[in-house]
Amino acid sequence: MPQWGMVIDLDRCTGCNACVAACHAENNLPIAGEEEAAKGRSFHWIRIERYIEGEYPNLKTRFIPVLCQHCDEAPCEPVCPVFATYHSPQGLNVQVYNRCIGTRFCANACPYTVRHFNWFDPRWPEPLERQLNPEVSVRTKGMIEKCTFCIQRIRKAADLAKDEERPVGDGEVQPACAQSCPTDAIVFGDLSDPGSRVSKLASQRRAFRLQEDLGTQPRVIYLKEGSE
């Protein structure tokens, strides 16, 4: 069984936000709008965090795309009273929308703040409501949602591979963010296959995980050269 994981090369990331836009389109993310976004209610399953170092004019801006880390020891999972979030055998941290009653305990327990709550029923300004992805369910008010590693694409690839009686090939599954990254900074694949591209990248000396010291064992591995 594949163990899905992701590598994000921060030395390649330009902070262009293409992954954010692609994720929005692929996963039917609601458009919060200017007013709601100002209140801190924007929906971005993946976001580019910007940290600015130094004093003007000697500034250095650093980018880090942050999405659900699909932790093996996820703090969000045990706290859900209704099993709306759980760990799949393939290592995905899965959110079952229909089970969610909206306690938001998971969102508070997540050290990466990557869980999003539907404050209202979803809205799309014209004509965006006509481009909804039919393979992704639309969420309603009162439930939590977050990055799924584009589980619909994983399913599709797995189904196809099953029909053709072969394992899923390396690079066959591409989440929207990885597919749209112009600098190829995001790589997705099977971490249990030592030959996969993601495994090779993850074993590099540059590899680290976000807030590794918390013991959450994230499935997202970042690559970064030491400070230059």
Partner: peptide, 15 residues
């Protein structure tokens, strides 16, 4: 009726 958006909650202050 409208959803919890009528409160002052946001991300990360969910409670």
């Amino acid at each position: 009726y409208h959803g919890l958006g009528v409160t002052g909650f946001n991300r990360p202050v969910f409670w």
